[in-house]
Design a protein around this nucleic acid. Structure first.
Lengths: 204, 204
DNA sequence: CCGAAAAACTGAACCAATTCCAAATTTGAG
DNA sequence: CTCAAATTTGGAATTGGTTCAGTTTTTCGG
């Protein structure tokens, strides 16, 4: 594929993405009709379906960008964690949840999760699952790092621990986006309390 | 409202529910058209919408019955738990997951969860959230019971611990229903491994 | 520069859930 | 038995995501 065609393709991808992101935030995911996205992006409805399998696919592209940004930010913590185990985990989780509503609304998160559940085998579903997996891996990496630094007992099952921490956080996050009036601070406090149970088991 | 009318109402509710359960299992949730349900239940489409707000509402009614059955079964374990803490939790979780696919398919679970996420404020969403809550409470009750019996240290945060166990199990269950080829035994083994981390922290 | 062939675009048609409505039926009270 | 209220019926209209057949654009060998 050469010049012009590739350029058009990139342009249109971008236009569709920008139009969608804008509309999703303004009118919500359900409130954004495909026709409206098409009009805003100055392409036809059919073209959108050339670029994305379905409406949900557009959403996942946006969610992916967000989660990848968070994963990058998390790397710093893993490389250089606070020496206190509780603080280390809390810092990483803080990065995740504090960023969560900057580009995405609660409704967008809910829709994204719902679609990944309905269609786990679709490209969308796979991508979303892969993102969850990457977050889990990052938490596990942090714990292994803390074990290397002798802040966590070496005979703890790092993988299991990381999964436990991630799964709990993720479930709490799900409840958070389901409740319109829940705040990020409440969420973090609740997770902190839950994690405290674990810390006793593993701190050196 | 007296006799006959109430009876008919109950009959129709029942017929719609049975027809739906059968079709959902045979053809899947998405594959079951409302018209087909109506035909099977021998009522008109309009009548279905008299009894249930939407298709998802029917599904939650079925899921509710299932979860309530599981909650009843769980009460026995809470009343009379195995003395070993790991066994106690494992037994309760065993009841939950072993029953999960008897009346519901993985697809039905996925749809139910997805809908509860998309519409957390709808009657459906509220009911589903309440069921999750009831399961959490039951796990917490088990742990408090074990504390009373001196099998779990009295100064552990029972509520936080129960939430952690439930949230982890629930997340693992979500992954389980997303993967077509995941087995219940694999699921239980994975959860057992994760819970082991916790047991060290709290066993007396 | 020309004329296929491939790729991409378009928007009207399709499908299934949901809503709406007027007519028919059933029920319960008097 | 009769009437009024409640409920059911089924078909038409609506809605919004998705598909598809036909058209336009882009590419590329000669």
């Amino acid at each position: 594929m050469s010049g012009l065609r590739a350029k058009h393709k990139a342009d249109r991808h971008q236009r569709i993405l920008e139009a969608s992101a804008e509309l999703f935030r303004e009118a919500g995911y359900e409130g954004s009709k495909i026709e409206a996205i098409a009009a805003q992006a100055e392409v036809s409805v059919g073209t959108i379906y050339n670029y994305y399998q379905n409406k949900g696919d557009i959403l996942v592209a946006i969610v992916s960008m967000e989660v990848n940004a968070v994963l990058r930010a998390g790397r710093g913590v893993v490389a250089n964690p606070p020496t206190n185990v509780g603080d280390a985990i809390d810092t990483l989780i803080g990065i995740y949840v504090e960023h969560s509503l900057i580009y995405l609304s609660k409704e967008m998160w809910r829709q994204a999760m719902a679609i990944s559940m309905q269609q786990p085998e679709s490209p969308f579903g796979r991508t979303y699952t892969a993102l969850d997996r990457a977050l889990t891996d990052q938490i596990c990496a942090l714990i292994v790092r803390l074990q290397d630094l002798r802040h966590v007992s070496a005979d703890a099952d790092g993988r299991a621990l990381g999964e436990l921490v991630f799964n709990n956080m993720n479930m709490m996050f799900i409840e958070f986006v389901k409740q319109a009036d829940a705040t990020i601070n409440e969420l973090r406090a609740a997770i902190r309390r839950q994690n405290r149970v674990l810390l006793d088991a593993i701190s050196v």
